[in-house]
Amino acid sequence: MIEYDEFENRMILKLVYYGPALSGKTTNLLRLHDLLEKQGRGDLTVLDTKNDRTIFFDLLPFFLVAPSRLKIKLKVFTVPGQVKHDATRKAVLQRADGVAFIADSQLSEETTNFESFKNLEENLQFVGLDIEEIPLVIQFNKRDLKNTITEADIKGTWGPTGIPVFLSSATEGWGIVETFGTLVGQAYDHIDKKHYLKDKHGLDKETFIQQLTRKINEVSIIPSPLAGEG
């Protein structure tokens, strides 16, 4: 959690899209930006990319207000995937409330996926987060490509860990909101345990997920008072 100000009645949460270079982390955020209702989220800030590669991070903010008037801001970040930007990854990972690990489904990328996941484990520990505790989902992206790891293999490897796994194609735009929705739900559970979102702020999990994952042209039931244009 980036910040929780009880006096000001606001909470800033952080979700991080982690994964190897060019696995589609930024594309995930772009798709969320395109697919989700403009109301309730801010603009996507893309910081200094170079040849399609993120060197700092991308940021997509979401806003919602609990019935208790608690203002919740959820900031979704990507990290640079390249090995050399490890220091930036550590800095972005600091105080994360949840991580989506975006793996590249291509067979040629198996090793880099594992290395990146190992790097995630190390860096979580480095910034004082427990990988057993932190909300975590895995997305196998680029399912539209050929020569990808089979679904059976993915289940065989990750099934026993109990970590939710999603298949997606960020370029085709499927599997993206599902990944995000599940991560948001897990993050809710995690925060609810400490800060009683439901009991103290009247915000239940379904509403929380629904508010953050409303797709464009779905009818908005509760208009967010903070919605605006960037």
């Binding site: 980036i2 800033i12 900031k75 800095a91 600091q94 190390e122 480095f126």
Partner: peptide, 16 residues
């Protein structure tokens, strides 16, 4: 040492 955690002055994502 991996057990050592470093707390930064500036948290990425802090509001401006």
């Amino acid at each position: 040492d991996n057990n050592k955690t470093i707390e930064y002055d500036y948290i990425i994502g802090a509001d401006k």
